[in-house]
Design a protein around this nucleic acid. Structure first.
Lengths: 220, 220
DNA sequence: AAAAAAATTTAGATTAACCTAAAAATATAT
DNA sequence: ATATATTTTTAGGTTAATCTAAATTTTTTT
């Protein structure tokens, strides 16, 4: 049987919240993420469990089953491919595409996804640096560093963001920080952990700890 | 307030059934087209009327209001633009795109539609020859002939189809009849109104009345 | 280990979109 | 013009996804 829009969203959110270890996700965490009440979440969990998409025992939190994981990853694949389409082909900014992709990710048709993937040249990452699962459902999270873990003087490549909020992405735009740029840490202030950085060896700027915490980078 | 997926479908279907004169559409016709029962249609009509999208008086059939017409035409615009995308960019056949576009037409975001339109080069017609409404909501149906109205010996251009069923479109594919091809009527059988035609001055074939009835053409 | 706090589930409603069966209105046919 | 048939609406239910309030279970604190 087919999964509804809502069911797919629950699976996607359970996937996101359970992390790479596949930890149990709590009812309250789901209520928060789905913007519903805990009682509504309980109802949905019973349904998803009946469909064999999650492991669920009362009061014990949930985990995805293999089937549930497949569905979740397929939704993520579609979301990220559509984001690439919106940015690469339609010229949207990376701060504008999340909500639209949130709708497009639920359009069925495997044929559509595979053709879209080919049309886009089988991209490996979405516009925020998140990895795109392949057609078989393999999703490998690259192990990036967070900029706060980088020491003074190091040069790193900007590979992704943890915060996807438009306001954060727009802030990066204004700072000239883009995916793939080189970030060199030229100074770290002990007091508030803010830093001075040099972008692509050209311009310098201050960034707050809040920003550093949300930048994923890689040593070269 | 926002219109639901279902509401948009009703408006689109009312638009289609009321024809260019904007005639009243009956409850039963809507039940047929929406694959629901008449009682369900009545419920929905009351709702659409409350929202100011249709003119509705009990037992009298319905017409779209100006607002309803705008919504309907916007849905049609999105449907047809996505069909162009699927065929032109993703390489789908014209017989494969209807159901997918049926889902995509309900994705909100005016920005998305305008960018898609530009990306596609502001196409005037969809892959079946149906006109695409412009951004302002102008939809002008070209007045094509039906092939049955064309006389022996005439040469016409194939401009569109009335039947959008995959089986019909696949039949045209197998016959080498494509949008824009030249059709010359070389023979008409009085008995069953079947005809012999020559396509693009090259190959000849027989076509039944059923086929002729569903081909939209234009004199050159 | 009992009490208090927090998290979760159950019970009972609500809304949108559908349904069936029956009633009412309109159209058609004799 | 009346009877019959058809169309449409009303009345009363159902299901998915939500809600609030109350009950229950688990966790934390003293």
């Amino acid at each position: 049987m087919q999964n509804s829009f809502t069911e797919e969203n629950y699976l996607k959110i359970i996937h996101a919240l359970s992390g790479r270890e596949g930890q149990e996700v709590s009812t309250n965490a789901l209520a928060e993420s789905t913007s519903t009440r805990a009682a509504s979440v309980t109802d949905m969990l019973r349904k998803l469990a009946d469909k064999g998409l999650i492991h669920y025992k009362k009061y014990q939190g949930v985990r995805l089953t293999e089937t549930g994981e497949k569905v979740a990853i397929n939704v993520i694949r579609k979301h990220r491919l559509w984001e690439v389409f919106l940015v690469e082909k339609l010229g949207f900014g990376w701060d504008e595409v999340h909500d639209i992709a949130e709708e497009m990710e639920h359009i069925p048709s495997d044929e559509l996804v595979e053709r879209l993937d080919a049309f886009l040249g089988h991209p490996r990452f979405d516009p925020h640096g998140d990895p795109i699962p392949d057609a078989k459902g393999n999703l490998t999270e690259p192990d990036y560093l967070i900029l706060t873990d980088v020491s003074l003087g190091e040069k790193v490549l900007m590979m992704g963001v943890l915060d996807h909020a438009p306001s954060f992405l727009q802030h990066l735009d204004r700072s000239g920080i883009t995916l793939g740029c080189v970030i060199e840490i030229t100074e770290i202030n002990e007091y508030d952990k803010s830093a001075s950085v040099r972008i692509n060896g050209s311009h310098s700027l201050f960034i707050s700890l809040e920003v550093s915490k949300n930048l994923l980078v890689q040593r070269r």
